[in-house]
Design a protein around this nucleic acid. Structure first.
Lengths: 173, 173
DNA sequence: TATATGAATGTAATATCATAACAGGTCAAG
DNA sequence: CTTGACCTGTTATGATATTACATTCATATA
């Protein structure tokens, strides 16, 4: 799937299964980066070189990277080589909605549609480690309902699934 | 709520909001322990002293404990004092469905109704650290549907919510 | 009852993930 | 051109988790 069009209405990049299907990834990453510029500038915060580079690194693949993986890359490129350098940039990206933390993996992945309102669930392939962002609206609504029934107020939720992506399901069966 | 009855049909202990409401906790814990005995004996596995003690420790409160918290308790009671002692017992309990891992906290909590088929979601109070097991059937079904739409096969899922329990919501507002 | 077997436990060492605290640098507003 | 906020770098340490191997225990069977 290679195509050319305006970045904000790419059907491929809007598809939830993006991580699991062939697509013009250079475009996909460039699009996310452009949106990140817009989001940060609108929020009045700075997408500094380290932060931008971390986002680029996360955008290279639809996988989650550990903070130390990111740190290794940064150090090799002349940025600081101590953990806080990576953790701070990652924390910033998560706060701005440009990246997500995958609890199950203690790792981070770039958000594929920053700026848009979304309730993400993550589908993690245990074989190839791909991470896809799926629509969790209905699941989240059901969770809200269950919480409301017992008087609990949800502030943040984590919805993650571990399993096999379509390609790995084919190849391992 | 103090009451006396047969253990398998306690309405209080069956309530999902158990962790957030006053109840006969000694009964609640004893019940879970009795069920644990039944579950392990039916599965042909051994609920050894360390394993049993770890479950008892987790059952003391409706909170999640870190592996090192558990280890500290074990060590003080004459069991081994190295991390694998705690991790192995916890892993066993999780495998048997007698405890759950709370990803968000890197911690563990006892299952309040072992042996029963259930799809748990966890409601974690950020103020008092209580952890309640809520019914995640509908949320899980919605997640399954979203995954199925993109060809992903879910094997294990994590559904956790962070927020305020009823009591803390009252007191902090 | 002796003994072989697999399971469980104990221990040492180490790997992996994360944060606190502080020093120095950058940059825009006044 | 200085001030103040923010960002980055670095040291040090804390928290979580696993690998590898030695030892003990339970139990089934000769």
């Amino acid at each position: 799937m290679t195509h050319q069009h305006e970045r904000s209405d790419c059907p491929g990049c809007a598809a939830p299964e993006l991580a699991f299907s062939a697509h013009d990834h250079a475009h996909c990453a460039a699009d996310a980066l452009a949106r990140a510029e817009a989001v940060t500038s609108a929020a009045g915060v700075r997408l500094t070189p380290v932060r931008r580079r971390v986002l680029e690194i996360l955008l290279e693949e639809h996988r989650a990277l550990g903070a130390y993986d990111v740190l290794g890359r940064l150090a090799a490129e002349g940025f600081g080589n101590q953990p806080p350098v990576a953790y701070r940039a990652l924390e910033f990206l998560v706060e701005q909605g440009l990246a997500h933390r995958i609890q199950r993996l203690n790792a981070f992945t770039a958000c594929i549609h920053p700026g848009e309102q979304h309730a993400p669930a993550f589908l993690i392939c245990r074989n190839c480690a791909a991470v896809a962002e799926a629509e969790a609206g209905p699941a989240r609504a059901a969770l809200d309902a269950a919480a409301a029934r017992v008087g609990f107020t949800i502030e943040r939720s984590t919805i993650e699934a571990l399993g096999l992506c379509p390609a790995c399901r084919e190849s391992t069966s």
